[in-house]
């Protein structure tokens, strides 16, 4: 499953890129993220509690970053599993200056497995898009809020 999207964030690419590398910021933006810790150079572990309606699950996962070229792009590898199944994916994230703002484009190849893949095939893409949308909405808000006072 390929999920892609573009979001415009009212901050410069360098700033957006930096924030994307900070676990504390990310944790606030990632839906259901209860814990995000850096475990090594470009490596993190995460604990997520996600629920869609009555379908709720806890997931533990590892995140690894590669191909880091600040402030233009990086690749994120994610592997997580929990009661209802597992998620594995790779997302290429590119940032482009668009005036004073940043246009962020992501393209993720996501693999979902286990029970969620089996019973949720009808809605999984919608769920993934929704979660990605929520993340960027919140992330934008945080980053924008974060930069505004400096103007």
């Amino acid at each position: 499953m390929i999920i892609q999207g573009t979001h415009t964030i009212a901050a410069a690419p360098a700033h957006v890129f930096d924030r994307l590398m900070e676990p504390a910021f990310l944790q606030q933006a990632i839906p259901g993220c209860e814990k995000l810790e850096k475990t090594g150079e470009d490596e993190y572990i995460a604990h997520l509690k996600l629920g869609i309606g009555s379908i709720k699950g806890s997931y533990a996962g590892k995140v690894r970053l590669t191909d880091r070229q600040p402030p233009h792009k990086f690749t994120m590898h994610l592997q997580g599993s929990g009661g209802p199944g597992f998620v594995k994916g790779t997302s290429a994230i590119e940032l482009k200056a668009e005036g004073e703002a940043t246009e962020l484009h992501y393209s993720a190849n996501v693999q979902v497995g286990g029970l969620i893949a089996a019973v949720g095939s009808r809605v999984i893409e919608a769920v993934a898009k929704k979660l990605a949308g929520e993340f960027f909405l919140k992330f934008s808000a945080i980053v924008e809020h974060d930069v505004k006072p400096e103007r």
């Binding site: 693999q111 979902v112 497995g113 286990g114 893949a117 089996a118 019973v119 095939s121």
Partner: peptide
């Protein structure tokens, strides 16, 4: 992944 794992699918 098996997408036809129940009678619902």
């Amino acid at each position: 992944q098996l997408l036809t794992g129940e009678f619902t699918d």
